[in-house]
Computed example of a mutant assay.
Amino acid sequence: MLELKLKKLLIASEMLSSANYTLERFGSGSDGFLNDDHYVESLINQVKTIRSEMDNLQMGGVSVFLALERLEGHIKVGGNQRLIVQYITEFKKILLDELSGSYVLTLSRLEQRLFTQSEPLFGKEVANNFQSLTYEIEEIGKCLALGRSTAAAFHMLRCLEAAMRAIARCLGIPDPIKGTDRNWGNALKEISTETENRWPKATRIGGDGALFERFHATLKAMANPYRNATMHLEDKYTEEEARSLLEIVRGYLRSVAARMDQDGNPKA
């Protein structure tokens, strides 16, 4: 997929169209305009800008670029203005034919911010402490920007899984070796057991005991309605549901990142 920034191409095309109009209306039978070095340079720059932007955007075939070369070459030698008008007209027709086979989607300002993410979507502390989630978090924003709500939810649940792994590591629970041990049910049981061993329920007034109890309770509450549902074909997320889940997951990751990094440090 290409990131299209069409402003330069649009401006250059408009200026070239303006030059075409000027030459058609005032240049007939005269070469006064093309004796003006500044005017010639301006026309050439517009052609170069169009070629550069079309190349960056991977737009246009061989015929488009050949038409641009003919146009630029004739301008450089101060050629006949009627021919320049003809070449500009030829280029525009060829370009329209080429673009008729293109399909372009645009993003709103809000969608563009989600797609490009100039600031970490989950905040700087999560970005620093959970660098392994950089891809997942970026994909959440991109999927939301493109209206792929269920895909965004999938990446959010992967983020929660990373948080769960960090919590287990913080408690000294070894990473699962067998694939069958990597399900949420088993991991949550181990976290619950280790939390109970370290901080019996009657003593969990505050500190890490209460914190890890909340970490576990939140993940357990999300296992069935979110994690398990997302893994099956029957369930889909609307945009509103995905954005609601985003706030939940973002808040949870921030809470975990405030206590530990992705390796569970500092240990409990």
Rank of each mutant, 00 (worst) to 15 (best):
I88Q: 04
Q86K: 15
E139W: 03
Q81G: 06
A127T: 07
Q81S: 12
L144S: 06
V126I: 14
E139A: 12
K142Y: 07
T106Y: 02
D97F: 03
E111F: 04
L83K: 10
E125G: 04
I140L: 08
V104G: 02
L83R: 14
L105S: 02
G141M: 13
E119Q: 14
L121T: 00
I137K: 08
Y103E: 03
S102K: 04
E125K: 14
I137W: 12
E119T: 14
R82I: 10
L121D: 05
F130C: 09
I88V: 15
L121G: 02
L114M: 06
R113D: 12
L105T: 12
G101W: 03
Q86N: 15
T116S: 11
F115C: 04
S118I: 06
V85Y: 07
T116F: 09
N128C: 07
T134K: 13
L133V: 08
N80F: 05
E111T: 02
N80K: 05
K124L: 10
N80M: 02
R113Y: 05
C143M: 12
Q112N: 11
F122E: 04
N80V: 06
R109Y: 05
L99F: 06
R109Q: 12
I84P: 12
Q112R: 11
V85N: 09
K142H: 06
S102F: 06
E136Y: 14
Y103D: 08
G141N: 07
N128K: 15
N80E: 07
F91G: 02
R82E: 14
K142E: 06
Y103N: 04
P120Y: 01
E119A: 15
K142P: 05
F91E: 00
L96C: 07
L121W: 09
L96F: 09
T106N: 01
R109K: 10
I137H: 10
L83W: 05
I88M: 04
P120R: 00
V126H: 11
Y103T: 09
F122L: 13
V104H: 01
K124P: 08
T89C: 06
D97N: 05
Q86F: 15
G79Y: 03
E136I: 02
I140R: 07
I88F: 01
K93L: 07
T106K: 02
L107R: 03
L83H: 10
E138C: 04
I84T: 12
E139T: 08
P120D: 00
L121Q: 08
L96S: 15
S132H: 08
S108Y: 02
F115I: 05
F91N: 02
R82T: 15
L110I: 10
L96N: 13
F115N: 11
L96K: 15
L95H: 00
I84G: 11
F122K: 12
I94N: 00
T106H: 00
T89A: 12
E125T: 13
F130D: 12
Q81D: 04
K142M: 02
R109L: 07
G78P: 11
Y135K: 14
S132L: 14
P120L: 01
Q112K: 09
S102I: 01
E138G: 15
V104P: 01
F130S: 09
K92F: 01
V126L: 13
Y103I: 10
S108C: 00
P120H: 01
L83N: 10
V126R: 10
V104S: 01
G141Q: 13
